[in-house]
Design a protein around this nucleic acid. Structure first.
Lengths: 137, 137
DNA sequence: GTTTATTTGCAACGGTGTTTCATTTGTTAA
DNA sequence: TTAACAAATGAAACACCGTTGCAAATAAAC
């Protein structure tokens, strides 16, 4: 599905910066950082607009943020076809060497949640070394 | 165990700011934010020293950082006795209403990690509403 | 095409986290 | 105890991250 269709389907306005962000993410296998998206957007990039659109499109269900730590953040489309991110709750693998994030399969988390607590969202991040970095290719 | 013993046991120097940070965390059931620790430290707080000590003590195995999102970070002692944080890998519950973090039980994560990937660390954050906020007490 | 609501992009701001460096402090060993 | 050394502190300065208010531009609906 192309960027225009995606925006229409989620009922938010089709604007140049939004299309550019979606296309940048579509062109890559892995989730991207803001810097990477910025580079791909060229002149179309504006910091404030970027943050606002990330928020709007996250709320609209078009993409999701992947928080590695309080400094590193990546963005990925919910419907990316590559990997396993079909927006079923899934885990993310962060490679400490190359910094790439890979969306993993659906995840099952088992822990004891105290009486009365109501879970709404599960975030699972696995850190380590990816195959690429591990085997030297 | 008191703060001085903790530092000695982990073989790092006993300094005033470090003791103050540990004591602040010991006095509270829940993990604390920097702002909360700062308030408890009073004059003993210095931003740069704080960040460096968090890093030093994290590496030494005294405490751990809990990253909620790229803006909200909390800190907790590894051996807190309260809750379940005996430094076995555990999940964290973040209450979206009151902002408190609760350390949960040991966690078991099930997902399919691709061939060749070497996991080193699992981070699990569950977001939702805590009992306290849910039942109105 | 005109209207209307949304979005953009600028200015300005506050928070987060790091590096460099001189000074102070803690520890170890005499 | 004191001297000597290594480590930690705190000040200044910097780079990023993320948000808000507001006027101008733009998209969608009529």
């Amino acid at each position: 599905m192309n960027a225009t269709e995606t925006l229409k389907q989620h009922k938010i306005k089709k604007t140049t910066p939004r299309i550019a962000i979606i296309q940048a993410l579509q062109k890559n296998v892995h989730p991207l950082s803001e810097a990477e998206i910025k580079e791909m957007m060229g002149d179309l990039y504006d910091r404030i607009t970027f943050y606002r659109n990330i928020q709007t499109m996250t709320e609209a269900g078009i993409l999701h943020r992947i928080v590695i730590d309080n400094v590193h953040v990546k963005y990925a489309l919910n419907d990316c076809e590559k990997g396993h991110c079909h927006h079923a709750p899934h885990a993310h693998f962060y490679c400490r060497k190359c910094g790439e994030v890979t969306c993993l399969n659906e995840v099952h988390v088992e822990t004891e949640i105290p009486e009365g607590y109501v879970p709404e969202e599960f975030n699972v991040l696995i850190q380590g070394i990816c195959d690429y970095c591990n085997t030297g290719r």
